[in-house]
């Protein structure tokens, strides 16, 4: 049981409250349970209300706790592993057993902006299907996704309205996604993104920029932004394999290469 000596620097006091709440959330409380009130924590640790708030706010921004306006502070669901693979939001949610829902923010054919055209290998101004959506898991906003697909690849892709799954729609139109590359970057969300993701201003997001390739080149360019407090990126690590080096000057290489 932690006891307060009263002579410690504020940072130690704050860490004590923080560590206590982390242990509480991990071991004693379940997801959705309320944490002790600010007043209770103030009394328990003999610290100021400001110190308690500092600890709680830090854990809220780390995604351990969640503040609900007018109701209190609760234990958050664990962060989701951001899937580093060629899958879609809907597929990921299905695997996690969560129900995915979507609000279409913008949909239609547009002239490709310069950057989009360059990435997709189409001429600037070429027609591209454009779709921007807010994605939710069990009703909670998780991500905003924006995607561009050359109209020439699948002219009728949006004929029945924006498709619920772009990858499924591409498959239906004979443009199966085969591989891709994604770049992840941390950023501060714009004001609009904060509103759409139900986050307080200046919250962190994870930006994913992806180019999806089919058999004959790029089929889709997408930019997504995920709530920074709800995701973590999991990447498997293996020892690097030894890169090949030229075996000059020997003319006939007799190396012991191990092709994977």
């Amino acid at each position: 049981m932690p006891t307060e000596t009263g002579s410690q620097p504020t940072s130690h006091k704050y860490l004590k409250v923080r560590d206590y709440l982390v242990a509480l959330a991990a071991e004693e409380l379940a997801v959705g349970d309320p944490v002790p009130s600010e007043r209770a924590l103030t009394q328990r640790f003999g610290v100021s209300r400001m110190t308690v708030r500092h600890a709680i706010d830090a854990l809220v921004s780390e995604g351990v706790l969640e503040k609900v306006q007018g109701r209190g502070t609760f234990v958050s669901a664990p962060r989701m592993d951001f899937e580093v693979r060629l899958s879609t939001f809907g597929e990921q949610m299905q695997r996690l057993g969560l129900s995915a829902s979507t609000t279409v923010l913008d949909s239609g054919a547009v002239a490709a902006p310069a950057e989009v055209a360059a990435v997709l290998g189409v001429s600037p101004g070429a027609q591209v299907h454009h779709l921007r959506r807010q994605r939710r898991a069990d009703g909670k906003p998780m991500a905003i996704e924006e995607a561009w697909i050359p109209v020439a690849l699948a002219p009728r892709l949006f004929d029945d309205g924006p498709p619920p799954s772009l990858y499924d729609a591409l498959r239906t139109h004979g443009q199966d996604p085969q591989w891709g590359e994604e770049t992840l970057a941390a950023d501060i969300a714009t004001r609009e993104e904060c509103e759409l993701l139900d986050m307080s201003e200046n919250s962190a997001v994870l930006r994913a920029t992806r180019r999806t390739h089919g058999d004959d080149g790029a089929v889709m360019f997408s930019r997504s932004c995920f709530r920074g407090d709800r995701y973590q990126v999991w990447v498997p690590l293996a020892p690097p394999h030894v890169p090949e080096k030229p075996s000059r000057p020997s003319p006939a290489p007799t190396t012991s290469k191990e092709d994977s």
Binding site: W179, G180, E181, H241, P243, E244, K245, P246, R248
Partner: peptide, 15 residues
């Protein structure tokens, strides 16, 4: 070849 110090495939890239 004379310009290469190391070369390896990495999933989608030649590094």
């Amino acid at each position: 070849a004379s310009n290469i110090e190391e070369i390896e495939p990495c999933t989608t890239r030649l590094r």
